[in-house]
């Protein structure tokens, strides 16, 4: 089913934010909508969005490619994005990431066997005073997890398994 049919209400709400002659502005919120279920934007949705906004699929793809929170490939249900930028790194982020990966038995960028989490290293998330920290990007959007320890992270992963965040 097309995005426009499936999420008729949301699409309408999104479009209402922008002047009709500049509806292209809606491309970013529509991409979040398209990414909601599978965690990445597939080609069909790019086509749908292009049609809604009267732009080309290539233009939509070009947006997906530019912004790091849009993905065009499947990964774990949750992306666990650990900030390892300078301020967090000064407060132990790199070591935290290493330990986390060791514990999960994966490398940075890889997904756990059960397909639940993909661990990634990302740039500053504006939580530098609360390192180590990461965000999860998943079906219900993006959430912050701050002042993290390995134990608390493993607990979180357990909870995610149960479908709760």
């Amino acid at each position: 089913m097309s995005l426009e049919k499936k999420y008729a209400k949301e699409v309408k709400q999104i479009l209402a934010k922008y002047p009709p002659e500049h509806k292209r502005s809606a491309v970013m919120p529509l991409l979040y909508l398209a990414q909601r279920e599978e965690g990445y934007v597939n080609k069909e949705s790019m086509k749908d969005i292009a049609k809604i906004l009267d732009i080309t699929e290539t233009e939509v793809a070009s947006i997906v490619g530019f912004y790091s929170l849009y993905h065009d490939e499947k990964a774990g249900k949750y992306r666990m994005q650990v900030c390892t930028d300078l301020p967090c790194a000064l407060r132990g982020a790199d070591e935290f990431l290493d330990k986390l990966c060791g514990n999960l038995g994966i490398k940075v960028g890889e997904t756990t066997e059960d397909g639940l989490v993909t661990v990634e290293a990302v740039m500053c998330l504006a939580a530098c005073d609360r390192a180590p920290m990461f965000q999860t990007q998943g079906p219900d959007g993006i959430k912050y997890h701050e002042y993290m320890t390995l134990d608390r992270t493993m607990e979180l992963i357990e909870a995610l398994k149960g479908g709760k965040e």
């Binding site: 080609k43 732009i55 080309t56 699929e57 290539t58 793809a61 070009s62 490619g65 530019f66």
Partner: peptide, 20 residues
């Protein structure tokens, strides 16, 4: 008036694509 070419990715990875 036919924007069928675009840039994918950014920075040093920027590259031309067409998915029409």
């Amino acid at each position: 008036g036919e924007a069928v070419l675009g840039f994918d990715e950014r920075g040093r990875h920027t590259q031309i694509i067409s998915i029409s």
